[in-house]
């Protein structure tokens, strides 16, 4: 069974926000909302300041707190599609427990009332295509694939390069990795 994830090369990302625009266009994300976003993290002491630019989104965690706290089963792990985390809109009651449970603040309430977030472009990956953000990235810094397949591009990159995930200490098992 596949376990989809993403690997993003922070040495290549320039924070152009093409991924954000592509996602909004592809998924009809309403004005004023976004499913993915850019984070800039600066650390160090001048003149040796290190800047990491990251394209962030739902981490489709191995141990998703949004799924365990959902009272209706609207938030669920899609076992047949790389164990990505999805929300069934007409099962969601908009209680917002999932928003409060996500350490990445990756979710929001869609103006129509249901909890919304990145789906890894489920409709595209079902057809064997990359998520829209990966497909449009002009620096080719984003990679999508099966983390459980040792021969996949994402597994090979993780094997070859130093990387980190976000807030692994939160215990959620995030599946987006950033190459450094």
């Amino acid at each position: 069974m596949a376990r989809y994830g993403m690997v993003i090369d922070t040495a290549r990302c320039v924070g152009c926000m093409d991924c954000v625009v592509a996602c909004k266009t592809e998924n009809g994300v309403p004005d004023g909302y976004c499913r993915d976003w850019i984070t800039e993290e600066a650390r160090g002491r001048f003149p040796t300041v290190h800047l990491e630019i990251r394209s962030e989104r739902c981490n489709h965690c191995d141990n998703p707190p949004c799924v365990t706290c959902c009272p209706t089963g609207a938030s669920h792990v899609e076992a047949g599609l790389g164990r990505i985390v999805l929300v069934t809109h007409d099962v969601c009651i908009g209680c917002k427990a999932c928003l409060a449970s996500c350490p990445y603040d990756a979710r929001f309430i869609h103006p129509e009332g249901y909890a919304d977030k990145c789906t890894f472009c489920a409709h595209r990956i079902q057809k064997g295509e990359d998520p829209a953000c990966v497909a449009v990235c002009p620096t080719r810094c984003m990679h999508f694939g099966d983390l459980d397949d040792p021969h996949s591009e994402v597994s090979r990159l993780l094997e070859a390069r130093r990387n980190h995930a976000l807030l692994p200490e939160a215990g959620t098992g995030p599946r987006i990795f950033f190459l450094t």
Binding site: C34, W37, E40, E41, R43, R45, L99, D105, R107, F108
Partner: peptide
């Protein structure tokens, strides 16, 4: 001075700048 600064380019209602889902 040690710099440690995170800038998030996201402004989702009820989420940013701080979580406020429950009134």
């Amino acid at each position: 001075m040690e710099l440690s600064e995170i800038t998030v380019h996201r402004m989702n209602p009820q989420i940013d700048p701080g979580l406020h889902v429950w009134g």
